[in-house]
């Protein structure tokens, strides 16, 4: 999982209209028009935000007959979680090393 894809998830979540779209999609797959009824930014803006959410891996679209439906993507938040786990493991290993050094110093006194 690249840093870029993780950054995309966090960036995607940082915008209110996009969070609103996720909220609407939490109720089930929807076509653009139905989503736009709940998100007061206009249909073309909704399409643009859906593209950002798709690129971040949070949303996917499927065709059902002639209808294009958008839905939440399974495991969409996984990249963000993985990034946090790796980051904190790195931070805490540096921290543990510093504590061990401090204990060594104190016992050498």
């Amino acid at each position: 999982m690249s840093n870029q894809s993780q950054a995309r998830v966090f960036d995607a979540l940082g915008e209110p209209a996009r969070r609103r779209i996720l909220e609407v999609l939490a109720g089930g797959p929807q076509p653009v028009g139905a989503i736009a009824e709940h998100v007061p930014v206009g249909r073309s803006a909704v399409s643009r935000q859906l593209r950002v959410l798709s690129e971040a891996g949070l949303v996917q679209h499927t065709s059902r007959g002639t209808r294009n439906l958008y839905a939440l993507a399974p495991d969409g938040f996984a990249p963000a979680q993985q990034w946090l786990v790796a980051t904190w493991d790195h931070v805490l290993s540096e921290y543990a090393r510093a504590v061990a050094l401090r204990i060594e110093e104190e016992s050498a006194k």
Binding site: P16, R19, R20, L22, E23, L25, A26, G27, G28, Q60, T62, A71, L72, A73, P74, D75, G76, F77
Partner: peptide, 24 residues
């Protein structure tokens, strides 16, 4: 309208994304 909305989104997301036909 947005109060607690985010929590609802996430709850819904978890439910939906973990469903067997997620994204279908």
């Amino acid at each position: 309208e947005y109060n607690n909305g985010w929590q609802i989104v996430l709850a819904g997301y978890v439910q939906l994304a973990s469903a067997p036909d997620a994204g279908a």
